[in-house]
Design a protein around this nucleic acid. Structure first.
Length: 264
DNA sequence: ATGGCCTGGGTACCAGGA
């Protein structure tokens, strides 16, 4: 199976690029973040024409998350929102079973946090705590193995930023954020798929639109695919498609993809 | 000098992003 996660920074503005991703990579499941679309404006028809069903949690102009699954795989037991999150109305979490793949998937858009010590930074930490609790609950329920993909707004280690010194005192790299990402892995018995496949290679999933950061290689790896340890042995590839960060009207994030061998 | 870019909303500029 092929899984993808992508912060699209507006699904309607990015629909041509999303359709490009579907045609190019033929993923089974795509986890989308920052769809920035009202529920009644979600492009169900265009995605159906491309062969994908969707479930989504949409809040209008901000945030918004979705799960796309290739038609025929199914989407079941959908759950929008995360117990314990501070602002559920912001639409930052959706999860669903994909019966045809035998997995449960979640699309997460973690609170940005803006500035260390700000109220929204505390909300970010609380959101990450809520993710860990939910990952633990799903694990304890012992249903289908879990995949959490999304924009974590945390670079897990200094190897995941172009210059750790440039982020001194900034969000996305602090110990409290990184400890909480580690706690999600621990609670859910999950593996960072990119790092499992590429233990040392620095690659990024986000580059600021400004100052030519993308072509200067100044990015961060803040989008992650976490897979149940039981799935990790089936990982065959995991990579970032930088080409989708190029061209006409790109998102400021590139999609992250993972290939897993079929269950035997 | 701390910006520069992009989004939606709405039609001037602002909030939010990371």
């Amino acid at each position: 199976m092929r899984l993808a996660t992508w912060n699209v920074n507006s699904l309607r503005a990015r629909l041509p690029r999303v359709l490009e991703l579907l045609a190019k990579h033929d993923p089974d499941v795509v986890l989308l973040q920052e769809t920035k679309v009202a529920a009644d404006q979600f492009p169900v028809g265009e995605l159906a024409e491309a062969g994908y069903e969707a479930c989504h949690h949409s809040a209008g102009q901000w945030a918004g998350v979705a799960v796309l699954a290739r038609r025929g795989l199914g989407i079941a037991d959908t759950r929008a929102g995360l117990p314990g999150e501070v602002r559920a109305e912001e639409a930052r979490w959706i999860e669903a079973d994909v019966p045809g793949l035998g997995v449960r998937v979640a699309s997460a858009y973690v609170v940005n946090g803006r500035e260390v010590g700000s109220p929204t930074f505390d909300e970010k930490l609380a959101f990450l705590d809520a993710m860990a609790a939910r990952a633990g609950d799903v694990r304890a329920a012992a249903g289908a193995p879990l995949v959490i993909g999304g924009d974590f707004n945390v670079a897990p280690t200094d190897a995941d930023v172009y210059d750790p010194g440039a982020f001194a005192g900034a969000t996305h790299v602090t110990a409290p954020e990184r400890e909480r990402v580690a706690a999600i892995l621990e609670a859910g018995d999950l593996v960072d798929a990119y790092r499992a496949v590429h233990p040392d290679e620095p690659q990024f999933t986000w580059w600021d639109y400004r100052q030519g950061h993308f072509h200067r290689g100044l990015g961060m790896r803040i989008d992650l695919l976490l897979v149940s340890a039981g799935l990790a042995g089936r990982l065959r590839a995991c990579g970032i498609d930088r080409d989708l960060r190029k061209g006409t009207k790109p998102s400021d994030h590139a999609p992250l993809l993972a290939d897993l061998q079929d269950a035997t």
